[in-house]
Design a protein around this nucleic acid. Structure first.
Length: 103
DNA sequence: ATTTTGACTTAAG
DNA sequence: GCTTAAGCCAAAA
C-alpha cells in the first residue's frame, strides 16, 4: 500500500466516530508524523471531500473550530458537530467529553 | 528541485 | 483573552 501521510490522515478522519472529534495534532501523530498538524490541516483544505471525509470532526488542539470551506464556514461546522451530539463549550468543543481517543 | 503556503501548536507579551 | 513570534511538517505551485 502506498501508506502515504495523506492517505493515513484521510483514513483516520473517516474512522472518527460520530459525536466525537479529533485534533489536527492527534491525527498527525496517528498518521505517523507527530507535529505535522499543519500538514493535516493543509490536506483538509486542498481536499474538501466533505462526503468522503468528515473533516468537520477535526478541530484545533483546544477544541476551537477552524477553517472549513463549506457552507457558512465555522458556523456550519459547529452546527454539524452539535447535530452529531458533540458537546460544546460555548464556541469550542468540549474535548473532555467528545475527544476521540482513537482505538 | 526549490519556494511558498497553510483549516496547527506552544510560548511569550 | 487577544496578538505576535517561532517551530514544525507535508502538499501544491
Amino acid at each position: 500500500m502506498s501508506t502515504t501521510f495523506k492517505e493515513q490522515v484521510y483514513a483516520l478522519t473517516r474512522r472518527i466516530p460520530k459525536g466525537k472529534v479529533a485534533t489536527y495534532g492527534q491525527l498527525a501523530t496517528l498518521a505517523g508524523s507527530p507535529g505535522a498538524a499543519r500538514a493535516v490541516g493543509g490536506l483538509m483544505r486542498t481536499n474538501p471531500d466533505i462526503p468522503k471525509t468528515p473533516c468537520h470532526r477535526v478541530v484545533a488542539s483546544d477544541g476551537s473550530l477552524t477553517g472549513y470551506s463549506a457552507g457558512h464556514g465555522i458556523k456550519t461546522k459547529r452546527q454539524m458537530l452539535l447535530t452529531e451530539g458533540v458537546s460544546f463549550k460555548g464556541q469550542k468543543v468540549d474535548l473532555s467529553q467528545s475527544l476521540w481517543k482513537g482505538r
